[in-house]
């Protein structure tokens, strides 16, 4: 039973990890806590529907179109909103990000209607039994895609000069400009990367949650995962996502599934009160 719960919980955890990564990436790089990020996740999934309905594309090409569109969306957010606000206060930037999320949410509500849309699973949702544990291929696909994206990001940040330059600019902007990094280009890259991440997360999570304009509430889960991980560490975001997924599943199974969401928000409050530096705060200090 416990093994079954843990296996199932990884699915939600993987998606939380992706969303948390987006939050942390934007925060580390630009200092902005992007409260509209959850709505960007929803919007990403709607982009697939829009591409299907508007251009009449089949599912997979529509996903590709949505990913390309989210590159443009990221560039637009930076060029149209965050670059003009670069000298404004952080609070103004955070409010702008919240307003931008609301614009996206209300756009899909007006354009696609307030009710839920069916969204296809990537693989079959019919469970199969592996060593007595029920495994859902659709969920495996979610975990697989998440792991793939995480691996790509790891390669980017650890193995390429451009990725290292992004990490460098997140660490010290003046230092980055002194070695010749154009910091505005790094910000653009961060907004594009996080927008693509949001769309990937949206496509993965939409069939689980049913796609409606208010699916963006999932953003708070990603936010909680990011806080769990310390909000400043990319590995922390991933661990925070998995931990949140597991805790939620345990609470949902052994306490009450109705209380599941309440428990994850309770975790958020508890972490802020007791361990504001997050789970990895300890580990980071031990390493030093």
């Amino acid at each position: 039973m416990l093994a079954q719960v843990l296996v199932s919980s990884i699915t939600a955890g993987a998606v939380y990890a992706l969303i948390a990564l987006g939050f942390v990436l934007i925060y580390k790089g630009t200092g902005v806590v992007h409260f509209g990020y959850g709505d960007q996740v929803t919007f990403g999934a709607y982009l697939v529907l829009i591409a299907q309905a508007l251009i009449g594309l089949p599912f997979w090409p529509a996903v590709v179109v949505a990913l390309v569109a989210s590159v443009l969306l990221g560039a637009l957010i930076y060029g149209g909103l965050m670059w003009p606000l670069r000298n404004a206060s952080l609070l103004a930037q955070i409010i702008a990000s919240l307003a931008m999320g609301t614009v996206l949410r209300e756009f899909v509500r007006a354009y696609m209607g307030p009710s839920a849309w069916p969204f296809p699973f990537l693989l079959s949702p019919a469970p199969i039994s592996v060593f007595g544990i029920l495994v859902v291929p659709a969920n495996l696909a979610i975990v697989g895609v998440s792991l793939g994206v995480l691996a790509l990001l790891f390669l980017l940040f650890e193995r390429t000069f451009h990725g290292k330059a992004i990490m460098a600019a997140c660490d010290n902007r003046i230092g980055a400009s002194l070695i010749g990094v154009q910091v505005s280009m790094v910000f653009l890259a961060i907004w594009i990367l996080s927008s693509v991440l949001a769309t990937v997360a949206g496509v993965l999570v939409a069939p689980l949650l049913t796609l409606s304009p208010d699916m963006g509430l999932i953003g708070i889960k990603g936010f909680t995962a990011a806080v769990l991980g310390g909000f400043n560490s990319l590995p922390g975001a991933v661990i925070g996502g998995i931990v949140l997924g597991v805790l939620e599943a345990l609470a949902g199974t052994y306490v009450s599934s109705a209380l599941k969401d309440m428990i994850s928000y309770g975790i958020l409050i508890a972490v802020v009160l007791v361990r504001p530096q997050g789970l990895l705060g300890v580990l980071a200090m031990k390493k030093v």
């Binding site: 000069f161 290292k164 460098a168 010290n172």
Partner: peptide, 15 residues
């Protein structure tokens, strides 16, 4: 203005 959270090797390479 070093990259304090990055390794010494990375700081050097980024130069």
């Amino acid at each position: 203005e070093l990259f304090l959270s990055l390794s010494v090797a990375d700081n050097l390479r980024l130069g």
